[in-house]
């Protein structure tokens, strides 16, 4: 089966700034692929090259088996795009906007049906300027869906939304994914990537630093849980590296951040170890290892704090 998207040795420079520094990707048909990375990692630049909006400095891109030189208009018929931050016309209604975008495609879906799918039926006659942030993002998604695309590109669909609006949008995206669109989405939320994407590439400074399913990437930590603990007085994280069962000890936003296999077995020993150093436990947090922990291990920085 030909991949939906094939990217090799992709490089893009803006003047002297290298935004994309040699990326290889492959996205299979029907899969939702996530580009995960902090601000400035090169996600938007990569997306705009895939969407045929930017010409890369070097490297090859094939979309649905074709390059952008071969199939301009035809290829666009088959893509649905939601850019990071677009303000669609202020004084058009939702339905008018979707009808406009529908008119650009030879074949596509019924605008009212698409509005219903993204949950904007009751806003169909409301002006765009009167929509909330979450509603605008859903409208942007609807403009991408109305051409019934083979590939959906969503650039940071939930950035800037409050948690409720975010979960609503996830629901809408999951629903759209069930219709069988291939999807590429960017995010700096590992939670979002884990929930929506079958596979992710973690980007940092224009490079892919890890690629795979969220489970595979978390498995590279060699540990399944993360313990974050702070002590009084504070101890350097390295102190805990010697405790049996601790795979890695790094500084985190809330004290020492330790990757472990089974926290229930390690925890008593950790507390004893801290006491032996003359420190008492001040706070403790245990959670399943996530992509954020992978990013922290790879870069020494926290994705969430960065984003």
């Amino acid at each position: 089966m030909t991949p939906a998207i094939e990217v090799s040795r992709l490089v893009h420079r803006y003047g002297t700034v290298t935004a994309v520094a040699g990326i290889d990707l492959e996205v299979s048909p029907g899969e939702c692929f996530g580009l995960l990375g902090p601000n400035g990692a090169g996600k938007t630049t990569t997306m705009e090259i895939l969407e045929g909006l930017l010409t890369p400095t070097s490297g090859q891109v094939r979309i649905l088996g074709r390059t952008w030189d071969e199939g301009n208009g035809d290829l666009r018929e088959r893509l649905g795009v939601a850019l990071q931050e677009t303000t669609l016309a202020d004084r058009l209604t939702c339905l008018e906007v979707i009808r406009l975008f529908r008119s650009f495609h030879r074949r596509g879906r019924d605008p009212e049906e698409v509005l219903a799918q993204v949950g904007l039926t009751d806003k169909r006659d409301a002006w765009v300027m009167r929509l909330s942030g979450g509603q605008r993002q859903r409208l942007a998604l609807a403009t991408a869906l109305v051409g019934d695309p083979d590939i959906l590109f969503l650039d940071e669909p939930t950035t800037g939304l409050d948690p409720t609006a975010r979960r609503d949008l996830w629901q809408v995206v999951e629903d759209a994914l069930r219709r069988g669109h291939t999807c590429v989405l960017t995010t700096h939320s590992m939670e979002e990537a884990e929930r929506l994407c079958q596979r992710v590439a973690i980007l940092d400074h224009g490079r892919v630093i890890a690629q795979g399913t969220p489970a595979e990437l978390v498995a590279t930590l060699g540990a399944s849980e993360v313990v974050e603990l702070a002590t009084d007085p504070p101890l350097p994280p390295a102190v805990f590296a010697v405790v049996p069962g601790v795979h890695q000890a790094l500084p985190g936003p809330r004290g020492a951040r330790l990757t472990v296999d089974r926290s229930s077995e390690v925890l008593p020993e950790l507390i004893r170890h801290a006491e032996r150093q003359g420190a008492a436990l001040a706070s403790l947090d245990i959670h399943r290892a996530t992509l954020d922990d992978v990013f922290l291990r790879l870069t020494g920085r926290s994705l969430e704090a960065d984003g």
């Binding site: 016309a89 650009f104 495609h105």
Partner: peptide, 14 residues
């Protein structure tokens, strides 16, 4: 400025 041109350029619109 509001990136509407870019968004439209990404559609098959002539």
């Amino acid at each position: 400025k509001r990136k509407l041109l870019k968004r439209l350029a990404a559609t098959p619109m002539r």
